[in-house]
């Protein structure tokens, strides 16, 4: 049997609905026989009547509704149709749910699923990676699973956590990633994973950029370099200890992220490594992000707009030569 990243997300939700009466799913087109724009909730409305609900195209109200329900003891899972449209819910996410526990001492356990990142032909408005925006604001946990196993266990953990979780699932990984079976348990949230060991260079990445980084590591291995690849798993909290331990072994750091280059997760990792582990570095830490333009539609443009195995390899080579 093989299970895709998308199926893992569906299975996690089925399990959550089965095990916990407080869980319901709320989002555009998630219900009925349709099961969501990407089919992440396919069949769930039928299996769990009244608990997988279609909503109007009202991102702000969808999140607001989930907040109210969570304050009253429910565990809503929201599906944004695309991460990009969560911009319409920024107020509820950043200002309402993000501040609630701090202000009132009442935590708000909502999970917001964001189908994130680029795929061929999706263009400026269906391709964005928003994790760095959400991580910037206090009060939110931001998950960025890069494997089928993490997609499954982290979503289950997201709903169990008493605080709001932004769960960034990557659309490119939906069908590209497969696993033999789903695990019962994963690493806890907040712990990064060394996905590949090496001693010449550390690449830190997350979400779909893990695939590109691992491919780059394969290429670098053919050239005789051993690359350690660290999967952050959640960008907030950020497991800087695992990153520092890796940099201590390799002395060189390259951070790779799919979001835009100004600020963001890769900059955050470098800032923390530079301040806590300056002495560990044999060369200036580097980062690679998408270009500072909207995300292009045409595959020829899109494939070079995002970091990819080829330009990650080139950047790594230059860093290894330093």
């Amino acid at each position: 049997m093989s299970i895709t990243y998308l199926e893992a997300i569906r299975e996690a939700q089925a399990k959550l609905l089965r095990d916990d009466d407080r869980v319901f799913i709320y989002g555009q087109d998630v219900g009925g026989t349709f099961g969501g724009a990407f089919k992440a909730t396919k069949g769930l409305a039928k299996e769990f009547p009244g608990r997988v609900l279609n909503t109007p195209i009202s991102e702000d109200a969808i999140v607001g509704t989930a907040i109210g329900a969570a304050i009253q003891g429910m565990r809503p899972i929201i599906e944004m149709q695309f991460a990009d449209f969560s911009s319409l819910a920024l107020n509820q996410i950043l200002n309402n749910v993000g501040t609630h526990y701090w202000r009132t001492n009442v935590p708000v356990p909502i999970t917001v699923r964001l189908p994130s990142g680029g795929t061929k032909g999706s263009g400026p408005f269906h391709s964005q990676s928003m994790e760095s925006i959400y991580a910037h604001y206090p009060g939110l946990i931001v998950m960025t699973p890069a494997t089928v196993e993490d997609a499954y266990t982290m979503l289950i953990e997201a709903v169990a956590i008493d605080d709001p979780v932004i769960y960034c699932e990557h659309k490119y990984l939906y069908y590209h990633l497969k696993a033999d079976k789903l695990p019962d348990k994963g690493l806890p949230t907040g712990r990064a994973r060394v996905a590949r060991e090496g001693r010449d260079l550390t690449i830190v990445s997350y979400s779909a950029m893990m695939q590109e980084s691992l491919a780059a590591a394969d290429e670098l291995a053919r050239e005789g370099f051993e690359t350690e690849v660290v999967d952050l798993r959640s960008v907030k909290p950020l497991d800087i200890d695992t990153v520092l331990a890796s940099v201590a072994r390799t002395g060189r750091l390259l951070c790779v992220g799919e979001s835009f280059p100004w600020g963001g997760t890769t900059a955050e990792v470098i800032a923390r490594v530079a301040s806590a582990g300056f002495h560990l570095l044999d060369a200036g830490p580097q980062r690679l992000n998408a270009k500072d333009t909207p995300i292009p539609y045409h595959p020829n443009l899109w494939s070079v707009h995002r970091p990819n195995a080829k330009n990650i390899t080139a950047k790594a080579r230059a860093l290894l030569r330093e």
């Binding site: 009202s58 109200a61 607001g64 509704t65 109210g68 329900a69 304050i71 003891g73 809503p76």
Partner: peptide
Amino acid sequence: AMISHLGAMISVTVGALMA
């Protein structure tokens, strides 16, 4: 507990009632 951003508490009330 209202936030400043006007209009935001209507849907929160709806959600509480749904719960």
